[in-house]
Design a protein around this nucleic acid. Structure first.
Length: 507
RNA sequence: GCUCCGAUGGUGUAGUCCGGCCAAUCAUAUUGCCCUCUCACGGCAAUGACCAGGGUUCGAAUCCCUGUCGGAGCACCA
């Protein structure tokens, strides 16, 4: 039975020993799941993320793969990534975003079972539109938008509503053939023109767009489906059982049900969730806003540490898992939620602390001569892993310390891994390595760097760059390593060389 | 204007369907103490919430009504 999936195993168990299954299920109920159970999971779980590839992903976008991926694992389901790229005009796809999004999903630790592009599937949508027309579920309409809107809001049908299917078919074929320009003709779904919710009345299923799609393979099409039609047809055709989407699409299911009814399909389960806000960032969680800031040069790129993008978090050394965990903790409630970055940081700290070697990094250091003492300090690589050895931080007659750490003249300070020094006149005088000074006399312990031979380093943070000097051993680190600069915080090494570059992760 | 939806500590969440076990869970945040040659990690403790008002009931976070606040849709965007 080991080769079977959980679901298959369960079915097997149901026939062999029903009482054992009940037992198994009550055990399951005892399990702690941050996400609520899905309903109607007996026939499997197939979910999809349906991103519009109009730019790289920001933090908020991580929620969909995080939740779908987690449900997939829990229910042994399938994860479809479908690019809903059916608007070559106002939400024009960015050709680089397709791969960037798949990369982001990979970074979060998931892999879609299937990847689809709606722009590859136009013929399928056309076929279903033809079928819908034949079933009396749609009509071509040439009303100007504003005019139709007025009629619709009054609950009145436009003259095109009573067209026979033959004429609609003819005009729809002309739409497909590109015989109309943008705005001249649409195909509307015949719902209920007097429905009490105006949002559901005879909505547009296809419209004309003059501008070619950026994807070569789709560039000849001019007649494009709207989200509710395309998405509704695809969800059914790809066997989606559970849909998660934002509250902005609360009416979508209600609209799509009209099409499902014409086709006699069963609508999937739907969960609506609220919007996510993120604290701590000055930049809004909006693809278009971030894009503008980059274009204006206010951000260096999609992975600028100040940008609330997944590329940025990745460069800062945040593990995808830390983001996923935080997203899962948000649940799927319909109210809007605020994600605390501190939750992401706390998760990440758990993941990286054990592996992060310690180093000294002195920001805007002041040079202090050191009189006496050994010629080097030897702090541990990691305080909880003595076996990883000790560092060698030379003291070439002078050290750098942070201005705020310089004690008043006459007072002592403990240079970590080196020993105790006293501030006299223009420098430090070594006073010994008796740790009692720290334990019993409260001498502050500070980090430091050699005045010469250190590694110049630029630390890029969400508040801008800071420069300073790191201890020489940092040169032995590898790009991509996440280290902890003692008393400063964690950072990911981004580049080594004349001036090393690190991205600040979090405290 | 029409139509939907929501409201538990700073943040998120459990509990709400099937009222009592809830003087409300867990996480994070904050503060204090302990540990420590880091202000990291770890340990202990404290602070902190059922939107308001009515009603039903022996009993309401949970059911009903009204109000308040907030969100969403009414696009030839997704």
């Amino acid at each position: 039975m080991n080769g079977l999936s959980d679901a298959e195993r369960r079915d097997e168990l149901a026939t062999l020993a029903p009482e054992k299954l009940a037992e198994l299920e009550s055990e399951d109920e005892g399990e702690e799941h941050p996400l609520p159970d899905l309903s109607n999971v007996e026939d499997g779980v197939v979910m999809r993320a349906a991103p519009n590839p109009n730019g790289p992903w920001h933090l908020g976008h991580a929620r969909m793969p995080a939740v779908i991926g987690t449900y997939k694992e829990r229910y042994d389901g399938r994860f479809i990534c479908r690019f809903d790229d059916t608007d070559p005009e106002t939400k024009r796809p960015d050709l680089e975003a397709y791969d960037a999004i798949l990369d982001a999903i990979d970074y979060l630790g998931f892999e879609p079972d299937t990847v689809l592009r709606a722009s590859d599937r136009l013929e399928t949508y056309y076929d279903h539109a033809r079928e819908l027309i034949d079933r009396g579920g749609a009509y071509t309409c040439s009303c100007p938008g504003a005019e139709f809107s007025e009629l619709k809001n009054a609950g009145e049908a436009c003259p095109h509503r009573e067209k026979d299917p033959e004429q609609t078919r003819e005009e729809f074929e002309a739409m497909i053939d590109g015989e109309y320009s943008a705005g001249e003709m649409t195909l509307r779904v015949r719902t209920d023109i007097t429905h009490k919710n105006p949002a559901l009345r005879d909505w547009v299923a296809f419209r004309m767009i003059d501008r070619p799609h950026p994807r070569e393979a789709a560039s000849d099409y001019r007649c494009w489906p709207m989200l509710d039609f395309q998405s509704g047809v695809d969800d059914h055709l790809t066997g989606v059982t559970h849909i998660i989407r934002g509250i902005d699409l609360q009416d979508s299911a209600k609209r799509q049900r009209f099409v499902y009814d014409y086709f006699d399909w069963e609508y999937p389960e739907v969960v609506h969730w609220g919007h996510v806000q993120v604290d701590e960032y000055d930049v809004s969680l909006s693809t278009s806003t971030i894009k503008e800031l980059i274009d204006e040069g206010k951000l260096d790129g999609w992975d600028d540490p100040r940008a609330p993008t997944l590329a940025s978090l990745r460069r800062r050394g945040i593990r995808g898992q830390a983001i996923v965990d935080a997203m899962i903790e948000l649940g799927t409630s319909t109210s809007n939620v605020e994600l605390s970055m501190s939750a992401v940081y706390a998760n990440n700290r758990d993941l990286i602390d054990d592996g992060a070697d310690r180093h000294f990094f002195v920001r805007d250091g002041v040079e202090m001569a050191v009189d006496g003492g050994p010629d080097a300090g030897h702090p541990p690589v990691h305080p909880e892993h003595e076996e990883r050895g000790r560092r060698d931080v030379p003291v070439p007659g002078a050290v750098l310390v942070e201005p705020a750490d310089v004690p008043p003249t006459g007072e002592r300070v403990w240079l970590k891994g080196f020993g105790c020094v006293r501030h006299v006149d223009d420098g430090f005088t070594y006073v010994g390595d008796d740790i009692a000074a720290v334990r019993e006399e409260d001498v502050p312990v500070i980090h430091w760097a050699p005045a010469e031979g250190g590694v110049p380093l630029r630390l890029r943070t969400t508040d801008g760059d800071v420069t300073g000097v790191a201890e020489p051993a940092l040169a032995d680190a590898a790009v991509d390593d996440v280290v902890q600069f003692e008393r400063v915080g964690f950072a990911r090494i981004d580049a080594l060389g004349d001036e090393a570059v690190a991205y600040f992760t979090h405290e």
